[in-house]
């Protein structure tokens, strides 16, 4: 008996060692340990063994089974490892094949610039508001200290709908509308479309976007205007950005200024973008004119404030180095896909 088991064991181990794959191993497992396997047959033959010998024979059978099972596990593991290695090798891809695009759409560069600008001002406590694009003459001009007869009211610049209604030429009317209905403190930015009677060319468009800003509170100073816009410039164009304020004139602010920023392309050394000056004109600003405050129902003795207006397209063109404004309104996907 013992011999027979030893033979089974030897033969099984030999066959397992030689097995090529998991199918072959499984076959061997069935041949020895399966219901009709050789070892199972031996166990079935226990009836013929003398009762006193049974424990011993049982032990031999068990040892044999364990040995075969151990070997089985070993070769199975090896076979699995080998199969995995084969599979992985077979599955090698050419990683230089083209990417599979998700085909997402792209935002308009004006929107990218606007979101950036809004992020900066919202972070500084400003609320983003809007006003009508078709606007009363009163809000677009008179309430902004641009009385009848002012050259800015001339028809060559303004699109008229009637003698009382115009397409707004600036986002500044939103200042007045906000002051009329809000008690200070006021901190707003108002982006939106504006219209001027300019023919379309590389630097002009009859329909474009501005962003207006307004702060009204007690004790607001020109120094606050400088500080606020300098911070905006650093956040928008980089921490190294320097600003320069030049006196200017706008009917609705006094004192008024234009703000230049150090050229963000050359850092101020002078290049084509800044026309060699090292500075780029970015926005107009000033202290809200006391007349404008009064007309909007705010007492200039109690409150003061500042306002600024930014040409969004100007920022977009500069930031992304786009050399022709017409590209912004053609909506060619080859252009849009770059943003």
């Amino acid at each position: 008996m013992q011999e027979k088991l030893a033979k089974i064991r030897e033969e099984a181990l030999a066959r397992l060692n030689a097995a090529a794959n998991s199918d072959a191993i499984n076959e061997i497992r069935l041949a020895y340990l399966g219901k009709k396997g050789q070892l199972t047959e031996v166990l079935k033959g226990m009836r013929d063994v003398a009762p006193e010998d049974r424990p011993k024979v049982g032990e031999w059978v068990n040892d044999t089974r364990k040995a075969i099972e151990a070997k089985l596990e070993e070769v199975q593991k090896k076979a699995a490892e080998k199969a995995l290695a084969l599979r992985l090798e077979a599955e090698t891809i050419d990683v230089t094949m083209p990417a599979k695009s998700a085909a997402m759409g792209h935002p308009h560069p004006n929107t990218l610039a606007l979101k950036e600008l809004e992020r900066v001002f919202v972070g500084m406590g400003y609320e983003v508001v809007e006003g009508p694009e078709v606007e009363y003459d009163y809000y677009n001009f008179e309430a902004l200290n641009i009385p009848d007869g002012h050259p800015a009211k001339d028809e060559q610049d303004t699109f008229y709908i009637s003698d009382k209604i115009v397409l707004r030429t600036q986002t500044s009317p939103v200042q007045v509308r906000t002051m009329e209905k809000t008690k200070p403190p006021i901190r707003i930015v108002a982006p939106g479309r504006v219209f001027r009677s300019d023919d379309v060319d590389a630097t002009h468009s009859p329909c474009f976007n501005q962003v207006e800003g307004l702060v009204i509170d007690r004790h607001i100073t020109f120094a606050d205007l400088k500080g606020t816009l300098a911070q905006f410039a650093r956040e928008m164009f980089g921490p190294e950005t320097k600003v320069k304020f030049r006196p200017h004139h706008f009917p609705f602010t006094e004192p008024s200024a234009e703000m230049d920023v150090s050229c963000f392309k050359c850092g101020g050394k002078g290049c084509r973008m800044c026309k060699g000056s090292g500075w780029i004109e970015i926005l107009g600003c000033g202290m809200v004119h006391p007349k404008v405050l009064r007309m909007s129902g705010i007492d200039p003795e109690e409150y003061s404030g500042f306002a600024f207006g930014i040409g969004l397209e100007r920022i977009t063109l500069l930031k992304y180095e786009i050399d022709d404004m017409r590209l912004l309104y053609e909506n060619d996907t080859r252009f849009l896909n770059q943003f």
Partner: peptide, 16 residues
């Protein structure tokens, strides 16, 4: 002219 930031009451910045 000095460079300062508005003091006064804080306002909440937000989008509508």
């Amino acid at each position: 002219i000095p460079v300062t930031l508005p003091r006064g009451e804080a306002t909440a910045g937000k989008l509508s």
